[in-house]
Write a protein that binds this DNA or RNA. Structure first.
Lengths: 205, 205
DNA sequence: TGTACATCAGTGAACGCGCGTTCACTGATGTAC
DNA sequence: TGTACATCAGTGAACGCGCGTTCACTGATGTAC
């Protein structure tokens, strides 16, 4: 990162970092290639030495986000072992923690409009992340009597939806929406009620 | 709407409609004032006879969306009366139905970046919509023993989050995300599990 | 019913702007000998 | 260790574009008499 005069040293990553900062601050719309270049102390043309163009730069930011996200989810899953319930709850918390700690990445991944099928690598990393959630849901399902057991993919979809909804509506400075509760509490309690509904937590705990 | 030569007749609404169509098709980013004007068969400058500018046009589209949304929610709430449970479930379904039937409005309201506090009218209509959800949650809470009753606003936040998450992740042609289940089923079942978790539906139904 | 005129709702040309992208270039770096 | 040279990673000027917005204008509409 040390600037050595003419050559930058690590421009590619500096551009990604600048892009992430811009996306975080000004939204996916506010990001421009020129501004990111300026932020990195470089001419817009220099970007083309490292990326194919604007879209490609966002895609790289998203890819790095999915990598961090998947790692975080996997780590959270492991941390709850061998309890299926603890693992599941940990991944839910990890989702929100990621969104809060890496808002630029989160927006690049979910709101920038880039398709996860843009490159095989991107598709792979996003699958890796969500497979953790599905695996956690699957293990959890084992504790439900088969006749009233919903498909694990449905369970993971529910949790994903609630997590994403909490992030979008309450965790960000969403315009004009004041959060009635801390997002962490909201997600925690929401998942709690949900798990109780699955019969996995005693009704009066 | 009939075009009477020089004068348009109902240009303001035609512009809103064009904006909604554009937002629906090309996302909140894809919308431009010029394009909307062209769509309506009019010069960009003509827009300024009816709106203060680009933002004002989006705000009007969002306002109309909140009006429809609030009406729909209120109607759904009424339709479930006098059962608190039926009312609650109906409002959840109405949320998703609105998002599907009015995708342009939905995006203008929740993804265009316009603040709900932009005008008092906008703030009022959005409050009206979400107060229905809170009222439904409140009535529902009456059926829960006080000592294990969560704050109604928390319950409505949970449902709002899950609804919004389902819409964003599974109901739209979200890039690269294939829906594992129909969004309607996903939301219905998710709310079902949640209500069971609140003890409002018998565990084995 | 017919005419004069004020009001209204458009036009079309022009603006300044920042954007993404291209191109020939050049200064810095690193390697072969 | 020193020099020649290929490669690399930047520059800076230029482009065409569509954007939002402004302005003086003009044709259409509707009303008073």
């Amino acid at each position: 990162m040390a600037k050595r005069g003419y050559h930058h040293g690590n421009l590619a990553q500096a551009l990604v970092d600048a892009a992430l900062k811009l996306i975080e601050v000004k939204g996916p719309t506010g990001f421009t290639l020129s501004e990111a270049a300026k932020q990195a102390g470089v001419t817009p043309a220099a970007v083309y030495r490292h990326f194919e163009g604007r879209e490609d730069l966002i895609a790289e930011a998203a890819l790095q986000g999915y990598r961090i996200f998947a790692d975080l989810m996997e780590h959270a899953y492991q941390s709850g072992q061998p309890s299926a319930l603890a693992s599941f709850e940990a991944t839910g918390r990890a989702y929100l923690a990621f969104a809060r700690r890496h808002p630029g990445h989160y927006v690049a991944m979910f709101e920038s409009g880039i398709s996860v099928n843009r490159t095989p690598e991107l598709a792979m990393e996003s699958r890796r992340a969500f497979e953790v959630l599905e695996k956690a849901a699957s293990a959890l399902s084992e504790h439900i009597p088969p006749e009233k057991r919903p498909p694990p993919q449905m369970v993971s979809s529910h949790i994903w939806a609630m997590s994403h909804g909490v992030v979008e509506l309450f965790a960000r400075g969403s315009p004009g929406t004041k959060a009635p509760f801390p997002p962490e509490d909201l997600l925690e309690s929401g998942i709690g009620v949900y798990l109780r509904g699955l019969g996995l937590i005693p009704p009066d705990s």
